[in-house]
Nucleic acid binder design. Structure first.
Lengths: 207, 207
DNA sequence: ATAACAAAACGAGACGTCTCGTCTCGTGAT
DNA sequence: ATCACGAGACGAGACGTCTCGTTTTGTTAT
């Protein structure tokens, strides 16, 4: 969110920021998001929970959404990314299951919905979100599809970016809009059906 | 959103609701949504613009989101649904273009993003949205795919609901999350690539 | 190396503003 | 005579800014 105050800046006298307060604020934000959700989260509430002055928050974060984004990302690293690499379909399924796991964490869906609504009114936040967060989420899936193409399982002229749009889009669509379940049966059929469209010929879809 | 007060109810003495105020409120909501967006919309602002007391709004709508939903849906009927029925791929493309047109109306994307965030905190709204709005949007696309299956262009065992998840999901994903463009090239490739996955054999994808 | 100093960030909270949702009025329509 | 209406007062609560002392931290002088 912001550069750390001490670590190896070039000569310039680094601003001195209390790392204790920083951590307390992020932790309090995560707790309050889980307990009460995005809408009910207030700066004053975070300050009180963290034992911190309001100004300390306003000094380091430009908006409530920026704070929530940092707290959200800091809590999203707990689910480890799969590294199966058996078949393309299995890889895609595993990555979809991973995405679902990340999004259905207690902090996940509600917070993402709140952030999404703020993207439309906060240009700076939208830029960072679409430059950093979105591509990071897509990268692993795109790599798996490219491996499949190198192995010849996927047509050379297939549009893999578009495939990621469809795969991830279906997941987010269910999470944010339709409310349909995000279970293993869903990710399994989604992976196999989309991959069939990308396949270079008849490739048996396992399991 | 609520039954109209006067028109042809069965005998029961309908409460007398001012249709003039009703329309003024919905119109003012639409205008303010276009001018200032979802976040900046306040009940007090709507009341002032509509020349109406706040209580009149609180009397007839349970929440800000419910009012926005009504205003949004009332303004979404202006884009007419296509009725091409030439080939399945052309139908799907036309329906995707229609969806994009509806969502990129001035009132569209910003409002939808705001509503989405409220679904997570407003159970009643979420129920109505997922029972009425979402299926209505999916219906036409599903019908087009079923016609394709009857014609034999689509495999009998294809999961068409899942295909709608992927098609609509990709559109909403770009609109709400990635910010990637929603242009004709996108809908064209999306339609052809997804349909290829559903196809029963080699079906030439026309321009 | 230690002490003294200045600068910046800190916790706390007062302040005026805004919107909330509820509540009363008096008015006008049926 | 009833009831929705426009208007707006009301207390609650969060906003973002600001001003207090206080504590921390980096720099300078001894």
């Amino acid at each position: 969110m912001r550069e750390l105050p001490d670590t190896g800046d070039d000569g310039a006298p680094t601003r001195r920021r209390s790392e204790r307060s920083h951590r307390a604020i992020v932790t309090a934000t995560q707790e309050l998001l889980v307990e009460r959700g995005y809408r009910a989260l207030t700066i004053e509430g975070v300050a009180a929970r963290a034992g911190v002055g309001k100004q300390t928050i306003y000094r380091w974060w430009p908006s409530r959404a920026a704070l929530v984004l940092e707290a959200y990302l800091a809590g999203s690293d707990e689910v480890v990314r799969p590294r199966t690499r058996t078949s393309t379909c299995a890889d895609v399924r595993a990555l979809l299951d991973w995405l679902v796991a990340v999004l259905t964490q207690p902090i996940g869906g509600r917070v993402l919905a709140g952030l999404v609504s703020d993207l439309k009114d906060d240009t700076e936040l939208a830029e960072r979100f679409q430059r950093d967060v979105v591509p990071a989420r897509r990268q692993a899936m795109l790599a798996a599809l490219e491996r499949g193409r190198e192995r010849g399982e996927i047509r050379a002229d297939a549009d893999l970016e578009l495939a990621v749009d469809a795969l991830h889009g279906a997941v987010f669509y269910r999470l944010l809009l339709s409310g349909a379940p995000l279970d293993a049966a869903f990710t399994k059929r989604l992976a196999s059906q989309v991959l069939l469209g990308l396949s270079s010929g008849f490739v048996p879809i396992g399991d």
